[in-house]
Nucleic acid binder design. Structure first.
Lengths: 129, 129
DNA sequence: CATAAGCCTTCCAGTGACTGGAGGGTCAAG
DNA sequence: CTTGACCCTCCAGTCACTGGAAGGCTTATG
């Protein structure tokens, strides 16, 4: 399988697939002409990575998850730990973003948005905090 | 005012203040010894930037907001537009993160987290999507 | 057989917003 | 005169790609 087929199969751009090889997440074979030759196992790994990345796992966590997936003697506790850590980072980000959104909503609502210079948004930014 | 005092006053690390000068957000004067000499107006700008950044505005938006703040003939509509654009990007991110969180929560809850290898998290990652 | 389109390759640079560290100058106190 | 706490600049690294240049390979057509 050539890279563009793998790209279609996994939804990952060819550039990303090459990058994942660069950082050693996959080790595809090579054809005589130098083209990458992807096995089914490479495609599975890439699909796994695509899914894990879409859930927001950092690439290094994806590497660990992939290793655990390959390890039949793994303990599910190790997987769960990674997921829980990631989940709490997401929760953290969510609460920061929610706070930002609430403040911004209030400010946007309070701003006339006309051709006059008075602006509660700028007033807020300039006020001491 | 020296950089460490400004840092204390604004909550921004000295490195960040130097960086903001590098990208021309502020133009502090220099003392004879080469040290930066911050005026009150520099400190005010930095505080403004710190607040805008804490609301998640990208640095380039901060630059625009600062310019509008300085412009007494501004239209509040221009400020509001920037804020609304930013707000919708936050809303976008929030919905992505919320979806991730919901999926992860379900998976984490379903995982035994013991010393056995069976793991619904890995099963999900390996399943077609 | 030549050529053109569409693959594939590598390598380099850029993104955003800092952050760490090396290497070195300056200043105030004892 | 030395020590410690400042300050300076410049370079490299972060994260996860992404864009682009320069060039080789493959396939179809004239």
């Amino acid at each position: 399988m050539n890279i563009s087929e793998v790209s279609k199969a996994t939804g990952l751009p060819p550039k990303t697939i090459r990058y994942y090889e660069d950082i050693n997440l996959i080790q595809p074979l090579r054809q005589a002409n130098g083209y990458r030759a992807f096995r089914d196992s490479d495609v599975h790994k890439l699909a796994f990575l695509a899914r894990a990345r879409s859930l927001g796992f950092p690439v290094e966590s994806c590497r660990s998850l992939l290793a655990l997936y390959d390890d039949e003697t793994r303990a599910s506790a190790d997987v769960k730990q990674i997921a829980k850590t990631h989940l709490s980072e997401i929760d953290q980000k969510l609460s920061e973003l929610t706070a930002m959104r609430d403040t911004l909503r209030t400010l946007v609502k309070a701003c006339a948005g006309d051709d006059r210079p008075d602006c509660p948004i700028l007033s807020d930014l300039a006020a001491p905090h």
